[in-house]
Amino acid sequence: MKWFDYQAPRNIGEAVEAMTLHPTARPLAGGTDLLVQMRAGRRTPDLIVDIKKIPELNQLHFEPGLGLTLGAAVPCYRIYNDSAVSRAYPSLAEVANIIGGTQIQGRASIGGNLCNAAPSADSIPLLIALGATARITGPSGERTIDVAAFCTAPGVNVLQPGEILVSIQIPPTAGGARYLRFIPRNEMDIAVAGAGVSVTLSNGNIQSAKIALASVAPTPITVDASSLSGAPVNDDTLKKAGELAAAAAKPITDMRGTADYRRHLCAVLTRRALASAIAAAKESK
């Protein structure tokens, strides 16, 4: 590891200024990806901007009707320890509980998981399925984009020099959601494939469904699930959802699995996640 400077700004303005002055600077929340990458020589920032001391980035605020504001630096454990958030978004609480182990969850943030832009990021497919948006601030002001459009390549996101992610906004949900991943071990593993699904029901039929996948393309991807709208809740529909996911996946063969196997997993996981989301939607009524 090479030398680097460290700065811990107290407000967004200072953070943006530091990030603007140092084009190779990296923001640090939990550091659970960044420090590993620096040790491995994959990133060599000359400045680390610790964003944990900025109030807006530590916000965790749920308001029925408005949704959830999830600050970019909020560590995972705060999500599943917050009863209001866990009740409103049980699928999010579950995802916060499967990223890394307990110690990692004390530091790692969903915002960091998003910014790290790994194809295998566990939180991103669920955020996409939940219709989440990313609030970004930078030298030229603030902007908001869909999480679905946030990642552009492995390890690369839409943030421009000087920009930081402030928070993730998740709209209120009327249905159910679930993220399922496949890992050969039971915990502490990287998804071979993952599927995030949300669904709303109407008169026993699917009103709308959203599906997103992890680990089967250079970025987490959104599956066009519009053809499921209006479909009855039955095994055929679940199967069809799986087929849509498998068709949308563009996996590669690597040490985590073969392309064919990953495509197959997309179908299985999507079907199972949708069934689980439907059950949750029914329960929440």
């Binding site: 915990e187 593993d189 040490m255 985590r256």
Partner: peptide, 24 residues
């Protein structure tokens, strides 16, 4: 040892080498 054709081990970390943990 997941080796590519050049003889590089592609899973040379405890994350990807996948020894069983207590949870497995």
């Amino acid at each position: 040892y997941y080796m590519d054709t050049t003889g590089t081990m592609r899973n040379s970390s405890l994350l990807d080498y996948r020894m069983p943990t207590a949870l497995d």
